[in-house]
Design a protein around this nucleic acid. Structure first.
Lengths: 202, 202
DNA sequence: ACAAGAAGGCAACTCCCCGTCGCCATCTTG
DNA sequence: CAAGATGGCGACGGGGAGTTGCCTTCTTGT
């Protein structure tokens, strides 16, 4: 039963190579064409691998792009969120990391996927990234409330949602990020983003 | 030369009917499947018209969806922007009109297209809608500045851009719209959205 | 009322991409 | 070094986008 051991486990030698090349090419392909324009056949060509080989390891496009996303996510999720002592700088730092992590390719690929995040498939793929660390983000807001920077009953998740919506509208634009963060914070301080407020949160 | 007159001009009778039914079905199709999932063959079926007939009048998907968009746009663009005497209510009114104009179908179709607006093709189709009336919108901001509601050197286009980005992130959600408008206005009043400010607009 | 000609119905066809299959070649490992 | 895992290869079924040629039906001026 020689050669049986690697069926699904850690791969070595040739297989490792193939996986590496395919993932590399797939990342480039996402950066180039996003999810909708993603052609498995093109990835195969770029990776010098046959189309079938890809399908054997990743059942379909979603699985392959999913693998690419997983790989991009690691470096970012393993760094703790900033704690600079001021909410504004925390947010600026955290979001700018998110925007420009890794080498250029990753950032670009990420921007492409963000642009398509309204598609069911894409949002299923990238939905986790901020969401997974919800507690850490929420703690960031809590700290600011404890310091008295913002009202006690500020709606933390909504604050993040506002900033994220703004940032994602213009990913990778540092000036825009600054305006977005400062503008939302002005609103937060003015109490426009409170929990459970009636119809109008004047 | 009977029957020659209507080649491209105003159509009557049968043709009118066909155009109407096709556009109606196409609107429903956009509302159902957005642009990416838009199948001309399905439109044909829904409209009780042959696929070929559609292709004869509209060269491709973009043209057909474009026609649908044009049609949705008219009712909205022919109403002047509100002038209630306060920027907040002006914005609330203007954006909520945009979100829920016409019958339900139009609003839904619009939301679908918004969701896909990052695709080149889609943004080319819907890009105008707010942009076309840039001057009117800008005047709305100017009036507020004249009344002293916001700083004189507020960056009007950017204010609109901020609100639009926020609103479009959650189209059709009235509560969200309220928070978005009030939050951005708080920032504007605090001077976070000024023209030509240096690196940081504290 | 009617003939000319515009508009619509229909089916077959070309492209192009997705994902699958069967068969054969090559690499890895006990 | 042989067994068996892995990859290469080409063909195929499926489905949607547009196109084309031909025929049927409707509209309109006279």
């Amino acid at each position: 039963m020689a050669g049986t051991r690697r069926t699904q486990g850690i791969l070595g030698g040739r297989s490792d190579d193939v996986v590496e090349r395919v993932l590399e090419a797939a990342l480039a392909e996402v950066a180039r064409a996003g999810y909708a324009g993603f052609r498995i056949a093109d990835v195969a060509t770029q990776a010098n691998v046959h189309k079938t080989t890809i399908y054997r390891r990743w059942p379909d496009r979603a699985a392959l792009v999913g693998a690419v996303v997983d790989r991009m996510r690691q470096p970012i999720e393993q760094t703790p969120l900033p704690d600079t002592g001021a909410l504004e700088t925390d947010l600026l730092e955290a979001f700018s990391r998110r925007a420009t992590f890794g080498r250029k390719r990753e950032g670009q690929a990420w921007a492409m996927l963000l642009a398509e995040r309204h598609s069911e498939e894409v949002s299923a793929l990238i939905g986790h990234t901020v969401f997974a660390r919800r507690d850490a983000w929420h703690a960031m807001i809590e700290r600011a409330a404890d310091r008295g920077e913002i009202p006690r009953d500020t709606d933390g998740p909504r604050v993040l949602h506002l900033i994220r919506a703004l940032v994602d509208a213009q990913p990778g634009d540092a000036a825009w990020l600054g305006v977005a963060v400062r503008t939302v914070l002005a609103g937060v301080r003015a109490g426009t983003v409170l929990r459970e407020t009636g119809p109008a949160a004047r």
